[in-house]
Design a protein around this nucleic acid. Structure first.
Length: 640
RNA sequence: GCUGCUGUAGCUCAGUCGGUAGAGCGCGUCCUUGGUAAGGACGAGGUCAUGGGUUCAAAUCCCAUCAGCAGCUCCA
């Protein structure tokens, strides 16, 4: 007999060798039906695993995250069998679970296309319906290597594990795959899945290796959950900033300039609203602003180190027999401004901001709407200071960043620290000093952070700010980068207290990162429903009929005089059509006006996302709207 | 950059077996003046991404280029 402890703390005596499945049956028939795996002493295992010693055991069902993962992993195996049965030449490489699904990397020369998904799924349903048991078979390492000697991928997988026992899983019909497991008891538990996409993926993520075909799928405990997931994807698609940017007429792209965004009038309203706010906050934090040229002599970029470290991403041009580069970063320009006169320690810290337009030639396959472009405006700044000022300055930047993020409604952000990369300039000592300065500042603010070893910029370590949008996707925004090298390369100096010339420390930092990307993130975060202060069209006046057009024009003028961004629909459509048309532009407020309103000097307010309307005096509405704008309120509810 | 897919009206998309192109929305004109999510009629709008090739004939088949999409690798 062995003693098992269940999650609720209760203990049970069972015969030695009882399987987890039998244990589940003992606990209850409901649990036995729902059981798909077990966690024995914290280790996931198949339901068929015999219990041979005292243990803490949890029966895993599909309601647990681990259960869902097992389901998806088993589904990946079923897909693998289906693919192998359709293309016998297919060689399986690696098939893990990912968030919301799974994929399997397959080496097959014939391309798998979306039109093949249906027959793969059909085959998968056959396998699932047959309800074949997943059977684990263990072999010794040498036995396994012998068995799979002809399979370079599986041999590689075995060589990458350190376990002496190598397990295989089969589910009948001779299909067997090397796998750590655990798996579902049988294929019949898989009822709701879908092949989502296929894309290339390098073996081991190494571009010098063969490109494999990665088939993505998703699997859920029930059809209903699968449908809900697909529905969620549809909703997410509607929030895509590339779709909304077109629909709301904010920006566009053109073949004439791949990766270069065209910002439309409405997009510029959002842009300028952000800039205005940004300037205000930076002024408060003691920044001054400069603007430096976009095109600068190539020699400058040799001096800065960009030529050696960033050339592949730079645009170059040539005229009057002179080579020029189009700036990918603002720092060299900033250094030249610094050098135009002498500086004293008394001026420090000098916080010099620049909304700098930079060009970076990104690889063609990485462009993605406004999120990844080849030309963008950085909200850059360079802080020149003494070594003692590093820590307080970094703390200041962190506070500034948080203040700005919160104003845009982002509360969920996290920070990552990146250290010295293989390709770098500057001595190890300098890197150590600057890395610990960043760590100290984070420690002081008690900010949790992830560390990315070797991920820093070539000139110094950095802190990155990442935010999550409402779909929980993470995007990098700001960055703080310490730089001891650039000031030396540019021979920047200041006169210290002791009347000697010293090299200042330079801190590069951006808060929003790129205006283009940030606007894209805002659009997705709000699903196009921008807060009042950012909305291109804040209010739209809709007369009931032509008879109320004059009153509508009066209201429109009043709102415009009060600095509100207002539109007015004087077309000969019915009010329903006017509302529907305005709706697609997502204005925060629609003001319906007819004879009633014109008599009482009121407007009937229809708030975005709310069908209930409320009649208020025009002046009251204006005061309310302007108050919300001033306070950057996200909510639109009319309060008195 | 790599792999796969896609490119037809301003937008979203149809277009069968190769026989010179269609819808809805939008746009214009007219009718309609309607109280909270799309009233009606008529009309304009296309070098079917670009360049080659096959064919009596190409939006359709083939090749190349460009761009976009998904992912990988990058980048931050």
């Amino acid at each position: 007999m062995v003693r098992v402890t269940l999650p609720d703390g209760s203990k049970l005596e069972i015969a030695n060798g009882t399987t987890a499945k039998q244990l589940a049956e003992k606990i209850g028939p409901g649990l036995a039906r729902a059981a798909i795996a077990a966690k024995i002493n914290g280790q996931l295992a198949d339901l068929s695993t015999p219990i041979t010693a005292d243990a803490t055991i949890q029966i895993i069902t599909l309601t647990e995250a681990e259960g869902l993962e097992i389901l998806r992993h088993s589904c990946a195996h079923i897909m693998a069998e289906a693919v192998c049965s359709i293309w016998p030449a297919a060689k399986l490489v690696y098939g893990p679970t990912v968030e919301d699904g799974f994929y399997y990397d397959i080496d097959l020369d014939e391309p798998i296309s979306p039109s093949d998904f249906e027959r793969i799924e059909k085959k998968m349903y056959e396998i699932a319906k047959a309800d074949k048991p997943f059977i684990r078979k263990e072999r010794s390492r040498s036995e396994a290597l012998t068995k799979l000697a002809s399979d370079r991928y599986k041999t590689d997988n075995i060589n990458r594990t350190d376990s002496d026992v190598i397990s295989f899983y089969s589910h009948g019909d001779g299909f067997e795959d090397l796998c750590r497991g655990p798996h579902l008891p049988s294929t019949g538990k898989v009822v709701a899945f879908k092949i989502m996409s296929v894309a290339g993926a390098y073996w081991h993520g190494d571009p010098t290796q063969k490109m494999l075909q990665r088939v993505y799928g998703t699997a859920w405990p029930t059809k209903k959950e699968l449908d809900a997931y697909l529905q969620r994807l549809e909703e997410a698609k509607k929030r895509d900033h590339r779709v909304l940017g077109k629909q709301l007429d904010l920006f566009s792209f053109n073949e004439a300039g791949p990766g270069f965004a065209f910002i439309h009038p409405k997009g510029m309203i959002v842009w300028n609203a952000i800039v205005e706010f940004w300037r205000g906050v930076h002024n408060k934090y003691g920044y001054e602003e400069i603007k430096t040229p976009i095109i600068l002599n190539e020699q400058l970029w040799h001096k800065s180190g960009h030529w050696d470290n960033y050339k592949e991403n730079m645009y170059f041009t040539r005229f009057d027999d002179t080579a020029y580069a189009i700036k990918p970063m603002n720092c060299p320009g900033g250094c030249l401004v610094y050098k135009t006169r002498q500086h004293s320690y008394r001026e420090f810290p000098m916080r010099v901001a620049e909304l700098g337009l930079v060009h970076r030639h990104e690889a063609s396959g990485v462009m993605h709407g406004l999120f990844r472009v080849r030309q963008f405006t950085q909200d850059d700044a360079h802080i020149f200071c003494t070594p003692e000022q590093i820590k307080p300055e970094i703390i200041g930047v962190i506070e500034l960043a948080f203040e700005i993020y919160r104003a845009f409604g982002f509360e969920d952000f996290h920070i990552e620290l990146s250290t010295k990369p293989a390709k770098h300039i500057g001595s190890d000592e300098i890197w150590d000093i600057s890395t610990s300065a960043l760590k100290d500042a984070l420690k002081h603010k008690e900010i949790e952070h992830k560390i990315n070893e070797g991920d820093g910029a070539f000139y110094g370590p950095k802190i990155d700010f990442h935010i999550r949008d409402c779909l929980k996707r993470s995007w990098q925004l700001g960055t703080i980068q310490l730089d001891f090298s650039m000031p030396q390369r540019f021979e920047l100096v200041y006169t210290d207290k002791d009347n000697t010339e010293k090299t200042p420390v330079m801190i590069h930092r951006a808060i929003l990162g790129s205006f283009e990307r940030f606007i894209g993130i805002l659009i997705e975060h709000y699903g196009g429903n921008l807060p009042l202060w950012l909305s291109p069209e804040q209010v739209v006046v809709l007369p009931i009929s032509e008879k109320s057009n004059d009153y509508a024009k009066i209201v429109e003028k009043k709102l415009r005089d009060a600095q509100l961004r207002v539109g007015c629909d004087l077309s000969d459509e019915k009010i329903d059509a006017k509302i529907a048309k305005a709706h697609s532009r997502k204005p925060p407020y629609m003001l319906v006006v007819g004879p009633k309103e014109s008599q009482s000097g009121t407007v009937n307010v229809r708030i975005r996302g709310d069908k209930k309307t409320k009649t208020v005096e025009v002046d009251k509405f204006i005061a309310m709207a302007n108050r919300k704008i001033a306070e950057k309120k996200v909510g639109l509810t009319l309060e008195d």
